[in-house]
Amino acid sequence: MERERIAVAGASGLIGSALVRSLTADGHRVVRLVRHAPRGADEVRWDPEQGRVDAAGLAGCDAVVNLAGAGVGDRRWSEAYKKRIHDSRVHGTKALAEAVASLDARPRVFVNGSAMGLYGETGERIVDEGSPAGSGFLPELCVEWEAAAGPAREAGVRTVLTRTGLVVARDGGAWGKLFPLFRAGLGGRMGDGRQYWSYIALHDEVAAIRHLLARDDLSGPFNLTAPEPLTNREITRAMGRVLRRPTLFPVPAPVLRSVLGEMAGDVLGSARVVPKRLLESGFTFAFPGIEDAIRAA
């Protein structure tokens, strides 16, 4: 990929910061979307929850990547926080897509973050990009979130939707919370442990986004998950092996529900998601197995 000017929303988040490091290391010019007054030419102001963005600041960008949104696992889901989760994604995406569509010289690609939460509870059933959306807060949010990217697609901009799984990383996301527990010897399966977790190493997440940025023949939804989802019980055992710690303390489902509230459904739920279209496009995972992904983190 030639050196380009790439705008990134959510540049300070777990995935966004890793993507920015990767892009800048290869000589690309990254423009960050920020909530404060811009401090230089590499910043563009926006307010995702209010649906506002300085479209003029995106002029000259070859690509726009939207990874912004209030953290789903950051706190218990009150009605107010669910509204924040919704507005930060749907309003922010719509504003960015409309800004992209309004430009005289539009970017060649708009990559919009989404989540495997779109599929909801899948049990042991394997799902890919052709599978229908589930029901409930997260699936319905993801459907609306992806639809908000419509203005960019309708304006002729290649639009990619990245349905990301559980990112295996040391400093954020689900694994950012799991690592300290397992290192302390307090880790264990959650619920009955039979629910499938579809994970992806942070390195592979960034590599997949860059693969989708570079390939002008790819558009639409792509699952960003490792090729073979595993059960929570299998992942728990792998954590114990890699970190050399016992995994003797299962967390009963009622405890999870009392602590996490509605969000517990996504911890206890099963999502057996596979990256069919990503693999068909020729992408190669560097850390496809869970032990490799954990070690990489």
Rank of each mutant, 00 (worst) to 15 (best):
E79L: 14
R106K: 14
W145R: 00
S78A: 12
S135D: 12
E124W: 09
E124D: 13
I85W: 13
R89Y: 03
G187F: 14
L118Y: 15
G172R: 00
S198D: 14
I85H: 03
Q195D: 03
A169V: 06
E79V: 05
W77A: 06
F179G: 01
T162L: 09
K94M: 14
L181A: 10
P180C: 08
R170P: 09
M116N: 14
L186K: 13
G113R: 07
V143H: 06
P107Y: 01
R125I: 10
D192N: 14
T162P: 00
S131L: 11
H86V: 05
W197S: 00
M116L: 15
L141N: 02
N112Q: 13
G173C: 07
P151R: 09
G73A: 13
D87P: 09
Y196F: 15
V109C: 04
A105D: 08
G191K: 03
L96H: 05
A148Q: 12
A105G: 07
A184K: 14
R108S: 03
W197M: 12
G187D: 07
R170E: 06
G150I: 14
P132A: 15
R89M: 04
G134W: 00
V127H: 07
G113K: 12
A155Q: 05
T162G: 04
E98S: 08
R75P: 04
G165H: 07
W77Q: 06
G117S: 15
T93H: 05
P107V: 10
A80C: 12
D171R: 13
I85R: 11
K94Q: 13
R163F: 05
F179I: 01
G123T: 05
D171L: 11
G134E: 07
V168S: 05
V168L: 02
A95K: 07
C142D: 01
R75D: 04
V167A: 00
F137N: 01
G193F: 13
I126F: 11
F110K: 03
M190R: 11
G136Q: 11
A149D: 01
E124L: 09
R84G: 08
V109P: 02
F179N: 02
S78M: 10
T159D: 05
V167W: 05
A169K: 00
V127Q: 10
V111C: 12
G165R: 02
G73L: 15
C142I: 09
A174R: 08
A155P: 03
F110A: 02
L186M: 15
K94R: 15
S114F: 14
L141W: 04
E146A: 04
A133L: 02
